[in-house]
Computed example of a mutant assay.
Amino acid sequence: MEDMKMEQYLNRANMLVEALPYIQRLFGKTIVIKYGGAAMLNEDLTQKILEDVTLLKFVGMNPILVHGGGPDINNMLKALKIEPKFIDGLRVTDDQTMQVVQMVLTGKINKEIVAKLNGMGASAIGLCGIDGNILKAVKAPPKNGIDLGNVGKITSINTTLLKTLAHDQYIPVIAPVATGDAGESYNINADTVAGEIATALEAEKLIFLTDTDGIRTNENDPESLLYVASKTDILNMIEDGKITGGMLPKVSGCLSAIDHGVKRAHILNGTIPHPIILEIFTDSGIGTMVTG
């Protein structure tokens, strides 16, 4: 029994040693994480993901968490008998839907995440794009000839505020609602927000946590996972119709970030325990890494 315990302790020690060079390399660096999808509906998975984020902060990195909330928004719309509509993974947002989006994202989900992080000993601060003009936007153009309603296109990001918070003791937790020049609110896809923030801050890493294990050449075949995908690979897959729907904003965010100086972009399965630690602190990593 004592030998078994010693072996367990040695395994833990070896894991810490394996993580050391990654901690050294990423110390003081900004890591933008987009969190959403099915993982948000599972308390145990949520706990483990937020433990990962807290760990990043305590070992000297600067995580910024951007969250979605599609399932919760859809549930509230259903309760109000409003039919959700999407175009290429983007939510069509009329005035009534915008009220629901803002209520659910900023009033419910954002504060739940902040409370959980603070309960782990972190100093999280909940924000949306309206606070401090973090996200300024204008109305997005039609998609495939369809007016998306109160969906915005980001025009500027208050990087000074985000850097001040992230480089201090705080973990910024951002709901993807932006503001216009006249004070109007815009719904922004959370994947897009994460990509834009990572770009503006020249983040070291951009991580998307999704419901799948990454980019597949055949979405129905887990064995077709691409561990590394280049810009050319992704553009070809989009053209061939192999990347569609909700994955489009994620890969677009990755490509934009890589084009504008972000060192690494990752698409990971957020429905497995501790996906961020597995990606950042292990030699093998998981999911798909997007390169230029």
Rank of each mutant, 00 (worst) to 15 (best):
N62D: 10
I134V: 13
M15C: 05
L105R: 08
P71S: 04
Q99P: 00
L80Q: 11
D72L: 13
M15H: 11
G107Q: 13
D72P: 02
L16R: 04
K34G: 01
M61W: 01
P21M: 10
L16I: 13
K85G: 04
M40S: 09
F58W: 10
P142D: 10
P84A: 05
G69K: 00
L127R: 09
E83F: 01
K34V: 03
L16E: 12
T106E: 12
Y22M: 10
I82V: 15
K139H: 15
A140D: 06
P141D: 10
V53R: 00
L80W: 11
V138F: 06
P63G: 05
K85F: 05
N11F: 12
V100Q: 10
G68P: 08
I109G: 01
P142N: 08
E51C: 04
V32H: 02
D131C: 12
G60K: 10
V59I: 15
L77H: 07
Q96N: 15
N144D: 08
M98V: 03
D94L: 03
I125F: 15
N42A: 04
I134G: 02
T30E: 13
G89P: 09
I87W: 00
K108R: 14
I87T: 04
L90G: 00
T97S: 05
I125N: 07
R12N: 13
I125Y: 14
C128G: 06
P71N: 04
D131W: 05
I49Q: 02
E83D: 12
G37C: 02
V138L: 09
G36R: 14
A122W: 11
G68Y: 05
L90C: 04
E112L: 08
L80D: 04
L45T: 03
D94T: 03
I82W: 02
G70C: 08
A19M: 13
M120T: 00
F58V: 05
A137R: 03
D95S: 15
G89L: 12
E83Q: 12
A137C: 04
I109K: 01
I23M: 14
G121W: 00
Q24G: 04
D131F: 06
L45K: 06
M103D: 03
N75D: 15
I87L: 03
A140V: 00
E43C: 01
K34A: 05
N42M: 06
I125S: 08
M120D: 00
N42F: 11
